[in-house]
């Protein structure tokens, strides 16, 4: 189970990577939208966690590209701010507000992985 983590914050990338690897997932990370799309194509992840507010291409654009390419791939929106007013994020499978407590994230991933 390969998880692609997209976040511009290196600390968070590191945190998510370590925590999720602890959970037994293989984790790849991308710091920008462009990088994420590259990895999406090349690494063929099973689940993507996607930050929205990023320099350059933002998470929503990334989401659209990813869904264009593979509509069935589960994407979890993980943001510092609640953008759920924006219908665009509705295309994602889940939405999580970032928290130091990663329990919710892990459970969501588990659930989506299970669905798969």
């Amino acid at each position: 189970m390969k998880i692609l983590i997209v976040d511009d914050d290196p600390a968070i990338r590191m945190l998510y990577k370590e925590e999720l690897e602890d959970e037994g997932y293989s984790v790849i990370v991308a710091s920008t939208g462009e990088e994420a799309l590259k990895l999406f194509d090349n690494e063929n992840p099973d689940i993507v966690t996607l930050d929205i507010l990023m320099p350059g291409m933002d998470g929503i654009q990334v989401l659209r590209h990813m869904k264009d390419k593979n509509p069935k791939l589960p994407v979890i929106m993980s943001t510092a701010y609640d953008y759920r007013d924006d219908f665009a994020v509705w295309a994602s499978e889940a939405y999580i507000v970032k928290s130091a407590d990663l329990t919710q994230l892990k459970e969501t991933i588990k659930q989506l992985a299970g669905d798969k």
Binding site: D9, I12, M14, E19, A80, Y81, K98, A100, D101, L102
Partner: peptide, 22 residues
């Protein structure tokens, strides 16, 4: 502003909290 604040504060908090948990 909210988004910025959230981004600027929550992100570090997530890191701080996350690693402290670790």
């Amino acid at each position: 502003v909210a988004a910025k604040v959230a981004h600027e504060i929550r992100n570090p908090l997530v890191s701080i909290g996350g690693f402290s948990r670790r």
